[in-house]
């Protein structure tokens, strides 16, 4: 049930610009409205993308949260890998890391026919 609350706060935060402004100035006030475990509270308070990923926050919700925090793309991917390294495999949900931390997002230049 607690993971549900951690995801719900991010769902609300991602789509509510007023809440975003409040969160930036007073995280504790926002976080106190949700029934969070200590681990979740601290991860949300510190913006720990890696731990939130491992806790099982839905990847799409987490991706939008990382964008809100202005985390650059490759840093965001690495933070998730670091989370797995530091805390173990993803504990819940459908966004587990399945390729052992391999990097897929670099691509060579090619002139192959795209079809």
């Amino acid at each position: 049930m607690s993971l549900y609350q951690a995801q719900k706060i991010l769902y609300h935060l991602n789509r509510d610009e007023e809440m975003q402004q409040t969160f930036l100035t007073d995280k504790a006030a926002v976080l106190s409205r949700y029934d969070l475990s200590t681990e979740e509270y601290e991860a949300l308070h510190s913006g720990d993308i890696g731990l939130l990923y491992v806790l099982g926050v839905n990847g799409q919700i987490l991706m939008h949260y990382a964008a809100f925090l202005k985390v650059e793309w490759f840093d965001y991917l690495q933070l998730m890998r670091d989370g797995v390294d530091n805390h173990g495999p993803v504990r819940a949900g459908i966004y587990a890391m399945t390729a052992g931390g391999e990097q897929f997002a670099e691509t060579p230049v090619t002139s192959r026919d795209p079809n």
């Binding site: 990847g59 799409q60 587990a96 399945t98 897929f104 691509t107």
Partner: peptide, 11 residues
């Protein structure tokens, strides 16, 4: 695709 995971870009 495996979006919003470290596997992003895998196809």
């Amino acid at each position: 695709h495996w979006p919003a995971t470290p596997d992003s870009g895998k196809i």
